[in-house]
Design a binder for these strands. Structure first.
Length: 601
RNA sequence: GGUCUUGUAGCUCAGCUGGAUAGAGCAACUGCCUUCUAAGCAGUAGGUCCUGCGUUCGAAUCGCAGCAAGAUCACCA
């Protein structure tokens, strides 16, 4: 039994015996004893002093004495004001290490693949432009939360919904037809998504020129000009043709989307993210339309005079929401009604999770409400994992102002920085395979980037300053990767030079724990609770902060405690076991973040 | 204007369901490589936890009000 549980039980009994207090076991909360006091776990006794009718110190002393009496694992206790600090027997910690050090995934639960899955949608790109830093946060978060939920024992399915249809892609297509001269990714050497993005920008440029011209020559206002500019009319015409499945338009659409997909694939691969299933909006929006029509028939929705279809949410304190335009075409909400159903049908999910920015909070409130009105009970299972925006020092990224941080560029820069940093440290040792070297730079770069993004609480907006490249020192991914590499180096040497047999446990009689070791052991001991907590909060940031604490404590220990130079064979072996345990937990926790850890660096 | 989110050191962030003297990293300043990898360690300095009121034995944490920033309230997605 874990020590917290043992103590909780004992304390519950003691409270009953001493004061007749009936406390639920799980209401007894123990906290970690602060560093400046001696002890491992602390009980705050203030909640019981009233019922006990004694001073906090007296209560703490009485409880402490009784618990120490009953629990062999308690080595001693001390009382400071109303705080009862228990010191746990060294044997408990030592045994804990030896019993768990060899576990491949300490603290991880295994998922039952038969249970209803949590379906996590993330990424959800538009196919008209390449991915940028905002998408990076979404992708890393969605992937990592999925892994986190798996680690906590859930069956998880990762899905992507590609927004492949609509006026935006028509704009790129039109511009390519007009100004592209048949340019392809092959002919230009450009990544497909960037090539298509280039024409999206080009459309906007020419479109703006047309508007300006219209305003100047015809004297109409800008709003009117925007609606009547020939390019816009052509784009809309193209969309109509697309919906009518005009063969030429359709073929072009497939060709250009194909370019984008292969471009995305490269970026996804570099980011290390993947999906179990990919949905395409072009294949789901019709179901949304049908659903709306049915809702209309059932009288849940209503039609306005102009023919548009709406949901009335005024009874829920919200507004009316458009679901079908007067010309019968669908909007964003319409297709989301379709995809949600399809997904529910495909997976019969326990939870439908959407990793989408907080700018769409309103959309998801409405989506759930409308699904409920349409009679879909499972609408309640939708959970919008809402995360904050990535901001630049001068505010939000704006594609029109050219302040977008491109995903591919950023990754390239990170890799270059990693290589440069590595060389400055004189770590580009000769003799190593260049491919291995390149892989190291890549995982360090991605480690820095991923950690930088994931360590921030998802809910909060975060700031990225392109001027100051992401750090490799301090509270960073590479710091943790470095710690891992150091440990692996020690383990290697213990095998190659000292031939220590780690498959046998040491005799623990002579093993004592110094403060640093005890600190590390306690952090390791927390791993299961941290995974649990992080999963409940959908927060990879909690994992990031945990693994940083662990690495930091290890480095402090490493600095002043000899490991390979330890002469007592049992102590040596115990320390190696502890090191190995730390390395594994670092590796596994970083794995949840999607960060690889190197054997050497 | 309504709704939602955020506000902690110069900067970037932790601080979990209320608990002891609010913690890290970066930047600044001091030390430590002949010893297991210095991408490290040890230390100094840096705080009106946005403000006020309330709840509580106890509030950065909970409630209310205010201030500030952001998002949203589209026949965009």
């Amino acid at each position: 039994m874990r020590i917290e549980e043992t103590l909780q039980n004992s304390i519950t009994n003691v409270l009953k015996q001493l004061y007749g207090i009936d406390a639920e076991v799980n209401t007894i909360t123990l906290q970690k004893t602060k560093k400046e006091f001696t002890g491992d776990l602390t009980l705050v006794v203030f909640p019981f002093v009233k019922a006990a009718r004694k001073s906090p110190e007296a209560v703490a002393n009485e409880i402490g004495a009784a618990v120490a009496e009953n629990c062999p694992a308690v080595a001693s206790f001390n009382v400071i004001k109303g705080f009862l600090n228990f010191e746990i027997n060294k044997n408990y910690w030592v045994d804990f290490v030896l019993q768990n050090a060899d576990a491949e995934k300490y603290g991880f639960k295994t998922a039952d693949s038969n249970q209803a899955p949590i379906v996590v949608e993330y990424s959800s790109p538009n196919t008209n432009k390449p991915l940028h830093l905002g998408h990076i946060r979404n992708n890393l978060l969605g992937w990592s939360v999925s892994e986190l939920l798996k680690a906590d024992g859930n069956n998880v399915k990762k899905v992507n919904l590609v927004n492949d249809r609509g006026i935006h892609i028509c704009k790129s297509m039109l511009a390519w037809l007009k100004y592209g001269n048949g340019e392809t990714p092959e002919s230009s050497g450009m990544k497909g998504d960037h090539l298509v993005g280039k024409y999206y920008v080009l459309f906007d440029k020419h479109y703006k020129e047309q508007i300006k011209e219209l305003v100047e020559t015809k004297g109409i206002d800008e709003e009117e000009a925007a609606k009547t500019a020939p390019l816009m009319l052509e784009a809309q015409e193209m969309l109509r043709k697309w919906e009518a499945k005009d063969p030429e338009v359709y073929a072009l659409w497939e060709k250009m989307n194909g370019w984008v997909y292969s471009g995305f694939d490269v970026t996804y691969k570099r980011l290390g993210i993947d999906f179990d299933k990919i949905y395409y909006e072009s294949q789901t929006y019709l179901l949304g339309k049908e659903t709306v029509m049915k809702g209309l028939q059932d009288g849940v929705l209503f039609r306005k005079e102009d023919g548009s279809v709406w949901a009335d949410l005024t009874g829920d304190g919200l507004d009316q929401k458009l679901l079908l335009r007067k010309d019968g075409t669908s909007v964003y909400m319409t297709q989301d009604l379709g995809t949600a159903q399809l997904r529910q049908k495909d997976y019969n999910a326990e939870k439908l999770m959407y990793v989408v920015g907080n700018e769409q909070d309103y959309h998801f409130t409405v989506l759930k409400l409308i699904l409920g009105k349409l009679g879909f009970e499972w609408g309640k299972k939708i959970h919008h994992l809402s995360y904050g925006m990535v901001e630049l020092p001068n505010g939000k990224m704006k594609s029109r102002e050219g302040t977008v941080v491109d995903a591919d560029d950023l990754i390239d820069e990170m890799v270059a920085t990693a290589e440069q940093t590595s060389k400055e440290k004189g770590r580009s040792d000769e003799g190593t395979d260049p491919q291995e070297q390149a892989h190291l730079y890549y995982i360090l770069a991605m480690g820095a980037l991923k950690y930088f993004i994931l360590k921030v609480d998802p809910q909060k907006n975060m700031l990225f300053n392109p001027q100051e490249s992401i750090d490799f020192n301090g509270n960073t991914g590479p710091f943790i990767q470095y710690t891992h590499a150091r440990i692996r180096s020690i383990i290697r040497k213990s095998q190659e030079q000292l031939h220590v047999d780690l498959s046998q446990n040491p005799d623990t009689a002579s093993v004592e724990l110094n403060d640093k070791e005890r600190e590390i052991v306690k952090i390791l001991h927390d791993a299961p609770a941290i995974i649990d907590q992080a999963a409940q909060n959908y927060s990879p940031a909690m994992i990031a902060n945990y693994v940083y604490d662990l690495a930091k404590s290890f480095n402090s220990f490493y600095q002043d405690t000899p490991i390979l130079r330890e002469e007592n064979a049992n102590v040596l072996k115990f320390r190696l076991k502890l090191c190995d345990f730390v390395a594994k937990v670092i590796k596994n926790m970083m794995g949840i973040l999607g960060i690889e850890v190197p054997e050497k660096m």
